[in-house]
């Protein structure tokens, strides 16, 4: 316990010092969660829509092991290798002692309980659009998942990207919780937009990033080089992805392409999650993808 306090003190001192130079990590006011009652079933939907297990389950975990969020998967990027932390319900090594405000701060502001900036490999640039009700429900659902005491491994990030204080500046530049497609939509398209832009964080891979790692929103979902350096992540705009709505919905359910090949690469992980959504939610995603601006459109 004393070690924990010492660590907290050091982190608090660092965070405090940073605040003088750059922006302080921002937080959600606890009153914003007043009166919200968690809904476990909804929390489970949020869990699968947000794809938590795709990054936070152990490397190679299959089936029910995907519910053990012990971390350890490695993500190679131009900035270094990020290692997914333990977010299981273990109170010491996971996030078992987090309040729902702590979870809101992480998802919406990229801020840790000790007021440190998270790296945007954790896709809070998308999750920042989450509804507070969904935070509360997800918080309750995560508590029901198994605890695991594997300690989180440190990220392998070299200078200068290992200076977390600089992330305050990154957030100023690139953390924008407004909708990317900001216009009048049908209820179904709105649901699709929420699933794609917020929870599903599709843009994190399918949108090109600039030299600082911020998503280039003017090229929303137009495809990008794969950050691991191999191949290209396809564009999803209607002029690039010619699949019908039914094709997209079926792909997100079973992984079958219109040629009845099965999905490959990282999308297999994604489909393990989207296969758990309702038909209505998968169709909503397809409907939204049909109204995003095309790659040839001038913004």
């Amino acid at each position: 316990m004393r070690r924990w306090f010492v660590a907290l003190a050091i982190v608090a001192a660092l965070a405090g010092g940073a605040g003088l130079i750059l922006t302080r990590p921002s937080v959600t006011a606890p009153t914003e969660l007043n009166g919200l009652v968690p809904d476990l079933a909804q929390g489970e939907v949020v869990f699968y829509a947000a794809g938590c297990a795709a990054c936070h389950s152990a490397p190679g975990a299959e089936k029910e092991d995907r519910l053990v969020l012990s971390g350890g998967r490695r993500f190679e990027t131009p900035f270094g290798t990020f290692v997914a932390p333990n977010i299981s319900s273990d109170p010491e090594h996971g996030i078992g002692n987090w309040s729902s405000v702590d979870l809101a701060n992480a998802l919406i502001h990229g801020t840790s309980p000790s007021r440190q900036h998270y790296y945007p490999a954790f896709p809070y640039a998308s999750y920042s659009r989450i509804k507070m009700q969904d935070v509360v429900s997800l918080h309750a659902f995560l508590k029901t998942l198994p605890a695991n005491s594997a300690p989180s491994a440190p990220h392998e990030i070299g200078f200068p990207f290992n200076i977390r204080l600089a992330l305050g500046g990154w957030k100023l530049l690139f953390l924008d919780p407004d909708w990317v497609v900001d216009r009048e939509l049908t209820a179904e398209q709105e649901r699709g937009r929420y699933l794609v832009e917020a929870l599903g964080h599709c843009g994190e891979c399918h949108t090109r990033r600039n030299a600082l790692g911020g998503m280039v929103l003017s090229e929303w979902l137009q495809g990008a080089p794969n950050p691991n350096g191999r191949g290209r992540i396809p564009g999803l705009t209607p002029d690039q992805l010619k699949w019908s709505e039914a094709d997209i919905a079926e792909y997100l359910k079973s992984g079958f392409t219109p040629d009845y090949d099965s999905a490959g690469g990282e999308m297999v992980e994604v489909i393990e999650n989207t296969s758990r959504l309702s038909d209505a939610d998968r169709l909503a995603i397809a409907k939204y993808l049909k109204i995003i601006p095309g790659a040839s459109a001038v913004d």
Binding site: E62, R230, G231, E250, K253, S254, G255, F256, S262, A263, G264, G265, V268, E269, I271, E272, S275
Partner: peptide, 19 residues
């Protein structure tokens, strides 16, 4: 359809090289 596709992907994910 979902479980069928999942069974295809399980093998392809582990044992098939990307295009």
């Amino acid at each position: 359809m979902g479980p069928l596709g999942g069974a295809c992907s399980a093998c392809h994910k582990a044992y098939r090289a990307p295009k």
